[in-house]
Amino acid sequence: MERLPNRTLENALSMLSAPRPILIATLLTLAAQPPVFGQLKEAEPVSEHIRLGESESGQFRVGAEITAKRGAVKNIRVMVAVPLECDEQQVRIAEENFTSNVESVDYRMLNGDGARQMVINIPYLAAGATATAAVTYDVTTRPVLPPEDDQTAKFKIPEKPDRSLRRFLTASPYIESRHGTIRKLQRSVLGDADEGLTDWQRVELLYDHVLESVEYVEGDDKSALQTLRDGNADCHGRSAVFIALCRAAGVPARMVWVNNHCYAEFYLEDDSGEGQWFPAESAGSRAFGEMPLARVILQKGDSFTVPERRRDKLRYATDFMEGTPVQGAGQPSAKFIREQL
């Protein structure tokens, strides 16, 4: 698949080439005071249903380097996605590197708990000057183990999904779950299934159909429909088809973005109505209801709305910058940082 860092940089630079200044919200200008930097919250307790393997720890560096190459710029605001706290991943700030012209660095969640963004505020950047805001995180990720075989029968497709799940039941960018082709395929795969199958087994049928009918081929990201037309795709296209089929069958499902890869998650509930997300690998070895590799998780979801870009539906919360050139100057350049150390 196309790597997230490359795509986000491309999107950000395309915004910088806009012919008109971009207006942003008024920023605090308390330059005489020390910078104020936001801290990350601890992850919520792990669900009783999720089984986790041995943890793997490492460091991940995220941030941006902004240079006023075409003259002075004011009111610069930069958004960068950072590693996500979730059941299987703990994140802690290890080191911060902020130049003095960075006024503040805060954090915010998008789509509830699907992505965390670092928001960098730079009130003024003189011509030729560079501002840097980079954070190194200690990230501890654990592989997700499959449920015990005798436990899978208790998981059901939710009859009355909670409001927070509804966005994972409808169409989203690259996941055309309402299209007739997707609905017809879902009915075809499950229509001939044994009536005695559990809901877990029915979702597994959809997963196996994708692995068997869509050849894995490295390439550009494809939508679910394009993948079905071509009969091949990388991790993104395969995940998109599986997610679309799940949603057409009433199963909440979403994309998980990790460093240089993505896979799917689907949601089922136990007899008491308590739900759990289960991963499904889309490349390499078959892995349904589990994630044997501990990769750094960046975002979960596939339809994001960012306050500064409310008209855009984004597959993931892209790195983004906006600012106002001073007296005819041009837009600054941005180098986004995302690297595993």
Rank of each mutant, 00 (worst) to 15 (best):
Q59V: 02
E281N: 15
E274S: 13
P158K: 09
Y124F: 14
Y174S: 08
N6K: 12
K154R: 15
Q90H: 04
T324Y: 09
D106E: 13
A240F: 02
Q226F: 03
L13G: 04
T29C: 08
P173D: 09
L225M: 02
K74R: 14
D192N: 11
S239V: 08
L205Q: 06
F336N: 09
T170P: 02
P21T: 01
M79D: 14
Q226C: 01
A334C: 11
K74L: 10
N111I: 06
F336M: 07
C86I: 15
A129R: 12
L341D: 03
K160C: 00
I243Q: 03
Q39P: 06
M1S: 13
D221K: 14
D270T: 10
M1D: 05
C235R: 14
D271W: 13
P143K: 05
G58L: 02
V62F: 00
S272Q: 12
R338H: 01
Q340L: 04
E269I: 11
K335E: 11
V105W: 03
L27R: 11
N11D: 09
G301D: 02
E2N: 11
L9K: 11
V139I: 07
P5Y: 00
G128K: 00
Q89D: 12
K335P: 00
L268V: 00
K156M: 15
V189A: 07
E65H: 07
R315C: 04
A287P: 07
L52D: 11
D221R: 15
T170Q: 08
S239F: 00
T99I: 05
F288C: 09
D113I: 09
S100L: 07
T99E: 00
N232M: 06
A31S: 15
A68Q: 06
E148G: 12
G191W: 12
L28D: 15
T152H: 02
T8M: 09
R254M: 12
L225V: 11
R311F: 12
D271R: 15
T305D: 11
K41H: 11
Q327M: 10
K313D: 13
G328M: 05
S303R: 12
P252E: 01
D192S: 14
S14I: 08
